[in-house]
Amino acid sequence: MWDYSEKVQEHFYNPKNAGAVEGANGVGDVGSISCGDALRLTLKVEPETEVILDAGFQTFGCGSAIASSSALTEMIKGLTLDEALKISNQDIADYLDGLPPEKMHCSVMGREALQAAVANYRGEVWEDDHEEGALVCKCFAVDEVMIEDTIRANNLHTVEEVTNYTKAGGGCSSCHEGIENILTRVLAEKGETFVAGGAAVAKPAAAKAPEAPKMGTLARIRKIEAVLDSIRPALQADNGDVELVDVDGKNIYVHLTGACTGCQMAAMTLGGIQQRMIEELGEFVKVIPASKEALVSMEG
C-alpha cells in the first residue's frame, strides 16, 4: 500500500467540499490518461472581485486523487482567480504533507482542473499543454515523455547527461536500464546508436556542457554554506533548520534540526538539498544526514 501522510488520509476519509457547488459559474473537467482518474471542479465566483466564494469537486479516482481535490478546494476558497492560479501542483502536494512520487500526477490533475474552471468562467478555451508518460524515475518523479523530450531538445547521449538535465536516475539508479532503453529508442530516430558509457558513434556529440571549474576547498565549503543558507528560510518556515557538520570529499554531512528531525519528509528534503548542491557545485555530491556526535564516533 502507499505511504500516505496523515493529511492525505484525513482529506480522503473526510473530504471537504465534495459535490457540485450550486449556482456555479466556472466548471473544469479534466482527467489523467495515465491512470484513468478524472475530476470535475465547480467554482462560484463573485463577478466584481473575481473572488472564489465556493468550490466543490467530484472525483473518479484513487485516495490521493480525492485528497488532492479536497485540498485544492480548501486552498482556493476566498482567493481571487489570479491568486488561485498561482497555486502549483507542488503547493497542493505540500498542503497534504507530500504525495508518493507515483501519485504526483493527482496534484497535477487538480491544478489543471483549476485552470480549466477559470478558463470556463472567463469564456476561454483551456488547452492542456501537459503530456504525461509512464513514470521512469521514482526517486524524482520523472516520466518517460519528459525524458524523451529532454533528450531530443538537448541532444543527449548518455544516462549521466539525462540525469544532469532531468534528475532522472540521480537517486537509487534502478531506472538506468529504462533510461538506456529510452536513449536507444530516441537516438534510433536520428539513425544513431546508443553506446553505454559514451557518446553515440554515428555523429559526434554536440558541444558538451562546459565543465564547472574546479573549486578550492575553502571556496567549495563557502559555496556549500551558501546553498544551505538559501534553503534555510524554507525549512525555518516549517520550524526546522539545517547545519553543515562536515565535508569529506564527495560526502556532505548535514544535521537537520527542529521540526525536520524524524519528519517523514526528511528524506525528500535531503534529496532536494543534494540536488541543489549538485547543480550549484557542478559536481556529484552526496548529502548525508549526521549529527556531530555520530560523526565523531563514526570516525573514531
Binding site: 476519509y13 495515465s34 484513468g36 482518474d37 479516482g61 484513487c62 490521493s64 501519485k103 509512464a134 521514482k138
Partner: peptide, 19 residues
Amino acid sequence: KAGIAASSGSACTSGSLEP
C-alpha cells in the same frame, strides 16, 4: 478502514499506474 483486506485491478494500487 473497516478491517477488510482485498485487492484491486485498479491502476492506482500498483506502482505502475497501469490499469
